[in-house]
Design a protein around this nucleic acid. Structure first.
Length: 604
RNA sequence: CGGGGAGUAGCGCAGAGGUAGCGCACCUGCUUUGGGUGCAGGCGGUCGGGGGUUCAAAUCCCCCCUCCCCGACCA
């Protein structure tokens, strides 16, 4: 059989045979455009919350993304493997992540009642694999990746493919002899990620991030810029600085080579702040029912930025275990608890709970002030030096104070950037105004270090015969999430607008046949063009249905193949077909005689 | 898990004690053929599940399930 013949008979390429039903109405359970359109256009169907079937059109796109990822990973020197989706829970117990992940894992038992989970990720499996295979520095580095389904019983699956409980992920893992090797590998992956997301047509930004459950030091999230994104990130319009809001700083950052994310702001020097000259003595003021900054500001007729917020917490662990701590930020900002965690490490800062507030009348919720007698450590954001005096809590219910002056009425033990960044703050690198935008996290890269290799015994012998744990990195891409992120960026009221290279087909060929001799000629011309294109290796979707032109146009725009070619009786009579570029709406005419060669030349 | 909303035909919805309806889709016939043609006729429903009240329950009561939105997590 000729190779072309099998392509021609592929039923998915003729719409009359394609397993597809488009919908006129938005599905009632969809909220965001990517979800609505992917369902309406017949790409996916929901089976359960966060779990979807991929229909022929959708699966084609998913495989296109997968292929781009595969090509870039292979080009970057990573080797593709396939790890199990069912993993023994015992493996997870060795790193303690069975507890850390907890209810996020789908768990199951075999007939012997041994415990397993559905893979939420694969650090344990891959590390154990490498530990068993490699034992010499001569074997390293190695970089493995897989593209496989992952399972996380999310607290709240949402937005269709954007947060599924079952999702396709590319997860990669590098193993090096030392941190230098890791950094080199990390850079290679970081660069490869740029190429992947560029090829997918995404507007994205790599941002420095806090490391989550996965552990490790430096890591970057790749954010596809989108209003429906679930993450806020800060970025500089003048330089390349970009960070997750949790990791963002303003002012000057002393950036270490090993990538401290929350570096201290330039030290304030001994001076305690603005002069107290001319500021009247601190005076209490009654503020009933004003336990929030907004309420205080309204009652006193002042700006929220003129109030000083005192975030009270307990130290857990460390020298100050059990003592009270205060974090001070201007009232128009909030305390960045991630930044605070870094400041108090290795101790933890635990917010006061309801019980504590109930049993400690000296800690009136909403009325806590900075000169609290029990405060063992007072940490303040540098912006607390920006104002000569503050309205703040009086440590007495229903009372605040005016004219609290730094150095005169309250002290600060430690200065650190513990306030959240807001739009307009100066960039820590170049001082230009920062912006905050929302993004969809489509990728995440981590420098893990030795957490997993130590726990799972992934060690190698060096040239001197000494044993060392391998130094690991890990690299994820949400492949199915990319499909949704791309549709968020590339669509209009009519439907999807796939970038070339991701589209389920290269060309959508519409036959406007109807009846009569002219129509029969047009139908024959379209059929021939279809066969020529298929023979030339172009993925063509032929709309050979007996439907009215309006239906075909509407479906073509909804499905969003980049190039539409319209073969109608009128045009064929003049020896031309019409071409429409879906993304731009641009239309032109091609001579029927060489339409096939023009279109196959336009192939990606 | 807390707070809010919803489950009625494949999809989108109406119906609020008397045995179920509309639009789209689907089937048949005619019609139309460059932007979701028009007309006529048809198929399709354990009204999410279970229990209760009642002569009678989609409708009232109780329990459960599922789905969506807002919050704590992540690719």
């Amino acid at each position: 059989m000729v190779e072309g013949a099998s392509r021609i008979t592929c039923p998915a390429m003729r719409m009359s045979r394609l397993f597809l039903r488009t919908l006129r109405d938005d599905p009632s359970d969809a909220e965001v455009e990517s979800h609505k359109l992917l369902v309406r256009a017949g790409y996916i169907r929901k089976v359960a919350a966060g779990i979807y079937s991929w229909l022929p059109l959708g699966y084609r796109v998913l495989r296109k993304v997968e292929q781009i990822v595969r090509e870039e990973m292979d080009a970057a020197g990573a080797q593709e493997v396939l790890l199990p989706q069912i993993q023994p829970l015992e493996l997870w117990a060795q790193t303690g992540r069975d507890q850390a992940y907890g209810p996020l894992m789908f768990k199951l038992q075999d007939r012997k009642e041994s415990d397993f989970c559905l893979a939420p990720t694969a650090e344990e499996v891959v590390t154990a694999l490498v530990a068993g295979e490699l034992s010499s520095y001569r074997d390293l580095p190695v970089n493995l990746y897989q593209i496989g389904w992952k399972y996380r019983d999310e607290l709240r699956p949402r937005f269709g493919l954007l947060r599924g409980r079952e999702f396709l992920m590319k997860d990669g893992y590098s193993f090096d002899v030392d941190v230098d090797g890791l950094r080199a590998n990390y850079q290679v992956m970081y660069d490869a990620y740029h190429r992947v997301f560029e090829r997918c047509g995404l507007t994205f930004r790599p941002v420095v991030a806090q490391s989550g459950e996965i552990g490790g030091d430096v890591n970057h999230e790749f954010m596809a810029v989108a209003a429906v994104g679930e993450d806020d990130f800060v970025w500089c319009q003048a330089c390349t600085y970009a960070a997750n809001v949790e990791a963002a700083t303003r002012a000057a950052v002393d950036r270490h080579d090993d990538g401290d994310l929350i570096a201290p702001v330039a030290p304030p020097g001994p001076a305690a702040g603005p002069s107290a000259d001319g500021i009247p003595a601190m005076t209490p003021v009654r503020t009933p029912d004003a336990a929030t900054i907004a309420a205080v500001a309204e009652q006193l007729g002042i700006d929220a930025g003129a109030t000083l917020k005192c975030f009270a917490f307990s130290f857990v662990g460390g020298d100050l275990d059990g003592r009270l701590g205060l974090a001070l930020v201007p009232g128009d900002r909030t305390v960045n608890e991630y930044a605070l965690a870094v400041v108090v490490a290795p101790a933890r800062a635990v917010p006061l709970d309801d019980d504590t507030f109930a049993t400690r009348p000296d800690l009136p919720r909403g009325y806590i002030g900075p000169d609290h007698p029990d405060a063992a450590l007072i940490i303040a954001d540098p912006s607390v030096r920006d104002r000569a005096s503050w309205v703040t809590g009086a440590n007495r219910a229903e009372h605040h104070v005016r004219d609290a002056v730094l150095g005169r009425d309250f002290r600060v033990d430690e200065w650190a950037a513990v306030a959240t960044v807001v739009t307009g703050d100066p960039c820590p690198r170049c001082g230009s105004p920062l912006r905050i935008d929302r993004g969809i996290e489509v990728g995440h890269t981590f420098q893990l270090g030795t957490k997993y290799s130590v726990a799972l015994g992934a060690e190698y012998t060096d040239a001197d015969g000494a044993q060392h744990p391998m130094v690991m990195g890990c690299y994820g891409i949400g492949v199915s999430r990319v499909v949704a992120a791309v549709t968020e960026e590339h669509h209009d009221e009519q439907g999807l607008k796939w970038p070339v290279g991701l589209a389920p087909f290269d060309v959508h060929l519409l036959v406007l046949a109807g009846k009569g001799d002219a129509a029969a000629i047009a139908a024959a011309a379209a059929e021939q063009l279809y066969l020529d294109l298929v023979a030339a290796g172009v993925d063509v979707l032929l709309d050979d249905r007996e439907a009215s032109p309006g239906v075909k146009f509407a479906d073509a725009d909804l499905i969003g193949v980049p190039v539409q070619v319209i073969v109608g009786a009128k045009g064929v009579g003049r020896g031309v077909v019409e071409r429409k570029i879906r993304a731009t709406g641009m239309r032109d005419e091609l001579p029927l005689a060489d339409a096939a060669s023009v279109l196959s030349g336009a192939r990606p």
